[in-house]
Design a protein around this nucleic acid. Structure first.
Lengths: 227, 227
DNA sequence: CCTTTGTGTATCGTATACAGATTTTGAGGG
DNA sequence: CCCTCAAAATCTGTATACGATACACAAAGG
């Protein structure tokens, strides 16, 4: 009785899960913008399912903080205010620090190898990649790093926070890509060296740096818009 | 046109929300034990609604980590392993520390006053209260303290983590109540003094102490069971 | 011209119905 | 007595249907 992944199977996992992943992807890719309404009928028609799986997916995304649901008014993509970004960053910085410290202590060779791979690709993409690819590699690096701490609770919390911050950062352009990946390299080096304190410091600082860069470019954009 | 909170209104907020709160309460009170299956038909009959709101509530609780959903097998109360408790504690300790530091810096007089109230009640309950009341006051103290940091993201994350740990701790008895509330008093004193570093240290230690006490009593119980 | 009231439409919230998967039950054979 | 296997019962996943609510826009009144 071998595993049966049917090429054109109707469903190997629940519709709600599939729909949820799809919507999440569209939100994180910026195809669905913050504030945009998520009408159940439209989504169910687009995705070719009934409203029920859509509703369940939206509930889950709501619990994750990616969408906001108001009674009798439906769901919309969460609008992340600057104040909330500050809160997210405050928490994320601390947790990324803890995570990096643990990763340095646990020191899993296989994951370290994978991180090296991602880092290589990231450095290349920082010079010549699309912003989309850059975002994907960034997420991948942080995901792998989260695995390295061998703390599933921590990983889950961090993923949620990261998704929400990236919601606000949107397409942050390639301007900071070089610095990003230079900092990633530093963190990985500290992890490989088993230097937990340094890894924690660099990871925390990395979050703050990225946020500061965003705040600056955001302020500049606003100034421009005010002209 | 005054506000109209109808005495016997059918629903001022969605059934799913009400149902979710009800189930969450039963889980946290221990009326629903870890591992217990949550059959939709049974719950909907008990609560007098159809299966749809129940399903949505279960999805939300699943996203919070209180229940586990397996495809085509339904929901059950999450079973928290000792390993996961360790992970939860590791993260919680750090976040409670951050929270206490921020609370000490922000230093909101009104919330501090409320914390004093809760502390008073808690001290009384530590001597003479029921375990149920003790649990309620403990949750209240931590909730208020979480508010004091004025970081909603942090509060939400911490509440989720706390609920999951309390799932494992179950009714931890009154044995540590005195120490618990002594430590609470210490944290509050540091917050009032505006000593962020001390508050953070005490809060972090508080989480570790509670976990250690639980581990000890748990080990003892297991030994007894093995006799 | 602005404010207010009424009606229509879009959309959500819940219930019910049915198909598919899983677990349980019971009979037959070793 | 235990194991195997098939059929029934149980339960979940999804679709459809209908009542309820909120919002938009137009018409009437000040």
């Amino acid at each position: 009785m071998s595993e049966r992944p049917p090429p054109a199977a109707p469903a190997r996992q629940s519709m709600a899960k599939v729909v949820g992943e799809k919507i999440r992807g569209q939100i994180l890719d910026g195809k669905l913008r913050p504030g945009e309404r998520l009408v159940e009928d439209r989504l169910s028609a687009e995705l070719g399912v009934s409203r029920v799986p859509v509703r369940e997916a939206l509930r889950e995304l709501s619990a994750e903080g990616l969408v906001r649901i108001e009674r009798n008014r439906g769901a919309s993509v969460t609008e992340v205010t600057p104040a909330m970004v500050a809160e997210l960053v405050e928490v994320r910085a601390l947790l990324e620090g803890l995570n990096a410290r643990l990763a340095a202590q646990r020191h899993d060779p296989e994951i370290v190898r994978q991180l090296g791979e991602v880092l290589k690709h990231g450095n290349k993409a920082a010079d010549a990649g699309s912003t989309e690819q850059l975002a994907r590699l960034n997420a991948e690096f942080h995901d792998r790093l989260a695995e390295a701490s061998r703390n599933a609770v921590l990983s889950d919390v961090m993923r949620g926070l990261r998704e929400r911050t990236s919601l606000a950062f949107a397409i942050n352009g390639r301007s900071r890509a070089r610095e990003d990946w230079a900092e990633h390299a530093g963190i990985l080096a500290a992890v490989i060296a088993g230097d937990g304190e340094l890894a924690a410091l660099l990871a925390t600082r990395h979050v703050h740096n990225a946020a500061a860069a965003f705040a600056k470019s955001h302020a500049a954009a606003n100034e421009q818009a005010a002209d």
